[in-house]
Amino acid sequence: MLTPLHKRLLNDYQRDFPLSPTPYQDIALELGVSEEDVIDAFVELDEQDVITRIGPVIPPNRIGVSTLAAIAVPETELEAVAQIISAYPEVNHNYEREHRFNLWFVVIAADAQHLAQVLADIEQQTGYPVMSLPLMEDYFIDLSFKLDLHDD
């Protein structure tokens, strides 16, 4: 269950987390609570996996190169192939999706050559061709995703 403080933190601090020596203290002052309250609330959000982390969000391809890749695998082999793919440190997302292309994963590498190597290696290890769909344009408009935090 989210408290009012949890909701404020979630709504108001998806961006503009202070770059100051004591950011939690700054937030506490803005919200009229104690620094300990803010830290405790963030720890709770983190422990409950409501937030994945607090930190800088990097747009794709600003540091290193990445691609969205997909693979079509028979249902019976899905789990084994997914495990092979998830084991790569260069893979930072791997989702099962309802489609003929049923595994979708993001690969991030330091440079294009290493990225190509990882994709080729995944093809070899899994025995299936990988469809690579690198980003061509990012239509991100800087409005954060609006969370509806009504309890339901």
């Binding site: 409950q48 982390r53 990097i58 995703f145």
Partner: peptide, 13 residues
């Protein structure tokens, strides 16, 4: 290079 600094919500949760 940094788009924003903040809490990254887990939509699913």
């Amino acid at each position: 290079i940094i788009r924003r600094i903040g809490a990254v919500p887990n939509h699913y949760k």
